[in-house]
């Protein structure tokens, strides 16, 4: 009983801290930005992990990210629709590519799947690079509409300009992603993913519809990643193929998830909330050029010394503290 309550209380407490600290410390734009982006990468990590839960390690999620970013940016640019519409619609471009993967890579596993996903990022990237008349080519899209402001009674949320408002938006996005992740772990559907991850042949013979469930996971994963890309385009105001289809975008969610712990509800989120601020606040000021190497180092150390990630450690600490 206590364990159940504690497992609920801790994330709630963490959520409260994340939600309330800006009230105490009102003018901290740097921290709003850093922790806002930490939440953003937390969503990206969750999105990546949902597909990974079905036993498929992707090295190409930048494809969904880039397509979501371009889908929303171009729609907003040509049709002048509000980002409130183009973000959810643009992300469909990512999901559509996800379904294509699911069908084409149906029989690929392990290393072969990894290579295929890695290579498949190049296709949309090259097309967007070269179709200049429509996509503005390698110069990218600039002057993308910022997120619209929202008025709730007397409360004005300037998502386009206020870093604090953006922080809250991204925190909410992360909370929703956290619920989706939890569902992907503990629901019946989550057990189907787990079964196929642990032994695909056995799962299939016990009635788990491996192909269908994995495709659903990929659909959800690619749509969420497309949403991230679309939000990114409007938060930043400019995108270019080399940026949104970069290897960094594919690798980061993998690193964050593995560091945090892939099989615990809060694992990937924890990874993002620890590593991204660590990188941005401590390492980047010290080593402006080499700080990205952190992620490389972290992944090597994690895989070598705690392949389950840090979340299980925290869980153990909690149990020790409790007893």
């Amino acid at each position: 009983m206590f364990r159940f309550r504690l497992s609920l209380v801790l994330p709630l407490a963490a959520a409260l801290v994340l939600a309330l600290w800006p009230l105490v410390w009102a003018e901290a734009d740097l921290y709003f930005q850093v922790f806002g982006m930490a939440c953003f990468y937390g969503v990206l990590a969750v999105a990546w992990n949902i597909y990974a839960l079905s036993g498929a390690i992707s090295l190409g999620h930048a494809a969904f990210f880039g397509l979501g970013a371009y889908g929303s940016a171009l729609m907003s640019c040509y049709l002048q629709w509000s980002p409130a519409v183009t973000v959810p619609l643009g992300a469909v471009a990512g999901a559509a590519y996800g379904v294509l993967w699911g069908l084409l890579f149906k029989n690929l596993r392990g290393v072969y799947l990894g290579l295929a996903t890695l290579a498949s990022v190049e296709i949309p990237k090259v097309i967007i690079d070269n179709w200049s008349s429509f996509t503005f080519g390698s110069l990218g899209v600039v002057g993308i509409a910022p997120l619209p402001d929202l008025r709730l009674g007397g409360l004005e949320l300037a998502f386009g300009t206020s870093l604090k408002a953006q922080y809250y938006l991204l925190l909410l996005f992360l909370a929703l992603a956290g619920l989706v992740h939890r569902y992907s772990l503990v629901s019946r559907w989550g057990w189907a993913l787990r079964a196929m991850r642990e032994n695909e042949t056995a799962a299939a013979m016990l009635g788990v519809e491996v192909f269908r469930h994995r495709l659903q996971a990929l659909l959800l994963s690619s749509y969420l990643t497309g949403l991230c890309g679309a939000l990114y385009a409007h938060l930043l105001g400019l995108i270019e193929p080399a940026l949104v289809f970069s290897l960094h975008i594919s690798a980061l969610p993998l690193v964050l998830s593995i560091f945090g712990g892939r099989f615990l509800t809060w694992g990937p989120i924890l990874g993002a909330l620890i590593l991204y601020p660590l990188d941005q606040l401590l390492l980047q000021p010290q080593f402006p050029t080499g700080h990205a190497a952190l992620y490389g180092l972290v992944i090597v150390l994690t895989i070598l010394f705690c392949p389950q990630g840090v979340a299980p450690w925290l869980r153990k600490l909690r149990q020790i503290a409790w007893n």
């Binding site: 787990r194 642990e198 032994n199 042949t201 056995a202 013979m205 016990l206």
Partner: peptide
């Protein structure tokens, strides 16, 4: 139709 495999294939972590 169900089957027990010759080489057992449990879900090892479950």
């Amino acid at each position: 139709i169900a089957r027990a495999l010759q080489l057992p294939a449990p879900f090892p972590e479950m």
